[in-house]
């Protein structure tokens, strides 16, 4: 469970680490706690996995990964574990999630995101994943337009 202070710390941290010499001190002063207390809290959040990563979120398009596709797969339930792990092991796969199929309209129950230099690259990666896993029923969904993309803000309503 998160305490009220935990929530206030999360709210402050999600505004970004200030660009000053002692950024934790600057945040701690706003929160009315000590710098060391805040550092200990942040380390504790990292240890508990509340903070997945303490670093920078980088817009990958700017670093040369220009194409990506969501690839959805119809995997027999009894093979889910094995296939999920196999697909997750590929470098080109950034995300690999099991989700429920919704029959009859939606038979796909494993979702991956693949990254390449071009859409054709993405198709070839998907074909390789299909050969490696033996899962033949899959589909690539390319994004046509980004309608919204924003960072999640937690605990905005006090």
């Amino acid at each position: 469970m998160l305490s009220q202070l935990d929530k206030e710390i999360i709210r402050a941290l999600q505004e970004g680490l200030p660009l000053v010499s002692r950024p934790f001190l600057a945040l701690a002063e706003k929160l009315g706690i000590g710098e060391e207390e805040l550092l200990a809290k942040v380390r504790d959040f990292v240890d508990r996995g509340v903070i997945r990563r303490f670093g920078a979120a980088v817009r990958h398009q700017d670093l040369g990964y220009v194409s990506n596709a969501m690839v959805v797969w119809q995997v027999p339930e009894e093979r889910m574990e094995e296939v999920g792990r196999l697909m997750a092991s590929f470098d080109e796969v950034s995300h690999c999630y099991q989700r429920p199929a919704r029959l009859p309209d939606w038979p796909y129950n494993l979702f991956t995101v693949v990254h390449g230099q071009t859409p054709q690259d993405c198709r070839e990666i998907a074909a390789r994943l299909s050969r490696a896993s033996g899962v033949a029923n899959y589909r690539l969904l390319f994004s046509i337009a980004e309608l919204k993309k924003s960072s999640m803000k937690y605990f905005v309503e006090k």
Partner: peptide, 15 residues
Amino acid sequence: GVIRRLGAIFDSRRV
């Protein structure tokens, strides 16, 4: 805009 966020990336479930 190369860096979208600096600092904590949260795990929404654990939050």
